[in-house]
Amino acid sequence: MLSKFKWLAGLLIGLACSVAFAQGAAWPSRPIRIVVGFAPGTPPDIFARMYGEYMARQLGVPVVIDNKPGTAGNLASDAVAKAPPDGYTYLYNLSTAFTINPYIYAKLPFDPQKDLVPVATTMRQGLVLIASPKFPVKSVKELLAAAKARPGTISHASYGAGSPSHLIMEWLKDETGTDMLHAPYRASPLTDVVGGQVDTVMEPMATGYQLISSNRVQALAYSGSSRHPSMPDVPTLSEVVPGLVMTSWHGMWAPAATPVAVQQRFNALMIEASKDPDLVKRIRDLNSEPLGLTQAEMAAALRRDAEIYSRIVKAKNIRVD
């Protein structure tokens, strides 16, 4: 009964805001707040500030970045879910806050499907499977062959149970019938990968390529749909397992009852931003790609990733709390 009341109250607030907007209320007329689910200096914060600067220039109002790190982006999501749906508060988060978190956390203080609405995408990057140069395996095919020959002896690090670096490797193992040892880390495993203490890790391209280009690690495979232009000789995972494609991407969400007209204008602005030459260059300099999707396309991308990740999580019974 309470959930129905909350839904009805949100609907009425949204309708009131929509009527006000339709009657000529100027948007925006005051600062916009973007709540980021990660700490200052992290990739989500860096990209959020890039887009925030663009928004401020185009809209003529300040755009304030509010960092609320914690529980893989859940703290920020909850804050925005409970914010007034007036078009002045947005969530900047990883897509995994909606495609993984609802399945690995037993209970969230908000409903990702009902309390927040996807409004825009900003960037995406593939992940690259890397290993120490000392590791005798030199390709993903050799890795799989070695794993089949010596089950359970080759290790793959991750940024914790349920992280993309974990789940993509579980997907690869399932599809190829291989057994490799998962080594979850609370912090970055890169030092141990470089040193050879752990064999491999599926690393975001933005950080992985710095190690590849300096020859501190070797690249075995890339998770995108096609080979990365910076690594044309490195095969994709889908060349070994057709359909095994996954990227990490960022987006923005708003409280669910935010006026539709504001959502549409916000989305149009973000699509324009993804084509801005200066912003495109800055994003590509970080080995990522700008991503400007419509709201419908963003929702479809969320459904696709959630279906894959949730299937793996349930099959492996992965929980973090």
Rank of each mutant, 00 (worst) to 15 (best):
S223I: 13
L220C: 03
P229G: 09
V234A: 03
S225P: 00
P232F: 08
S238V: 02
Y222A: 11
V241T: 03
V240D: 04
M231E: 06
H250A: 05
L220V: 02
Y222G: 12
D233E: 14
H228A: 10
G224L: 01
M252Y: 14
M252T: 12
V234S: 04
L237W: 08
P242L: 11
V240L: 15
V245R: 07
A219S: 13
H250D: 10
G243T: 05
S248C: 00
V234H: 01
D233L: 04
H228Y: 13
M231Q: 13
G224N: 08
S230D: 13
G251N: 09
G251A: 08
G251I: 00
W249N: 11
L244V: 03
L237Q: 09
S225M: 00
R216S: 07
M246S: 15
S238C: 09
V245W: 12
L220D: 01
M252Q: 15
S223V: 12
S223L: 14
A221R: 13
E239K: 09
H250F: 11
S226M: 03
Y222S: 11
P242Y: 13
A221W: 10
P232S: 10
W249I: 00
S226R: 10
D233S: 10
H250E: 13
T247W: 12
H250R: 01
T236E: 13
Y222E: 04
M231T: 07
E239G: 08
W249S: 10
S226P: 00
S238Y: 07
W249Q: 05
R227N: 06
